[in-house]
């Protein structure tokens, strides 16, 4: 039985609250190269923060580690104070992750895909929740169509719908605007607002920094697997070696 690593202050403690996300020198090697080379940061609960940086910066790798899809080679990553390596099953109950790949089943319909997800997420009200979710993401008219015939944007919408079936405290989105038209992008913006109003913490890796920055509390810029700078509210570097901080608006032009 792996030992649980939960850094927790007692209720009403005067101590600093547990961050939604805390990483300490997290590194991930693929072969001989480091996709992530020692990132230490923390994100406060209930914040919407964005990760920016060029391709290969390590944004996706960091999100995948937090989602328990990848194990860090070195370092530690905690979600709500729970170690993602020691107790991934507890982390999975708290995290919803939109990855690059949508992870849908081509030969099932949109409804069947969401019903399957609802069962896996322990939703007893799938019969009501699934049609409502399909309507939320604009796919009510395509509910009984097989996903094989969906466009990339429709698949993205359906994957977003799957996130809505979960009740996460941490939402991780990897390029959520990819393949979406203007309506789809507006849908993402509405969902971001909904999650934030619901008290969830949201981390978004996006090349559409200008779009996200209007909504985001704070941001972090990664480059070459390193955390280069952070800005705004709710996100901060925790490594002594880090770097500058900048106002939240500074990254909008990147």
């Amino acid at each position: 039985m792996p030992q649980t690593t939960i850094y927790s202050a007692p209720p009403n403690s005067p101590l600093v609250p547990i961050p939604a996300v805390a990483t300490h020198e997290v590194a991930r090697l693929f072969g001989g190269s480091a996709a992530l080379a020692g990132v230490s940061l923390s994100v406060e609960r209930g914040r919407l923060v964005t990760l920016v940086g060029p391709n290969g910066a390590g944004k996706t790798t960091l999100l995948r580690i937090l989602a328990t899809s990848l194990r860090p080679t070195f370092g530690a990553a905690l979600v709500d104070g729970i170690d993602v390596v020691a107790r991934p099953e507890l982390v999975r109950r708290r995290v919803a992750f939109l990855a690059h790949a949508t992870g849908l089943y081509d030969d099932l319909t949109a409804t069947e895909n969401l019903r399957f997800a609802a069962t896996m997420l322990g939703r007893a009200d799938a019969a009501d929740a699934v049609p409502a979710t399909l309507a939320d993401v604009g796919l009510a008219a395509d509910a009984d169509r097989r996903v094989r015939g969906f466009s990339a944007g429709m698949r993205r919408r359906l994957a977003l719908g799957r996130l809505l079936l979960a009740e996460p405290s941490l939402v991780l989105l990897d390029e959520p605007h990819a393949a979406l038209d203007a309506d789809g992008m507006a849908l993402v913006d509405r969902l971001l607002e909904r999650w934030r109003e619901g008290g969830a913490t949201v981390m978004v890796a996006s090349h559409h920094a200008d779009r996200i920055m209007d909504l985001a509390d704070g941001w972090a810029r990664l480059d070459g697997g390193l955390l280069v700078e952070t800005g705004g509210r709710g996100i901060g570097a925790t490594a002594p070696a880090l770097a500058r901080t900048a106002p939240a608006t500074a990254v909008a032009d990147r």
Partner: peptide
């Protein structure tokens, strides 16, 4: 093979079950 299309295996592994 059904699970490797569109990386559904990764999604399956992430469900809290």
């Amino acid at each position: 093979q059904v699970e490797t299309d569109d990386d559904a295996l990764d999604q399956l592994a992430r469900y809290p079950v």
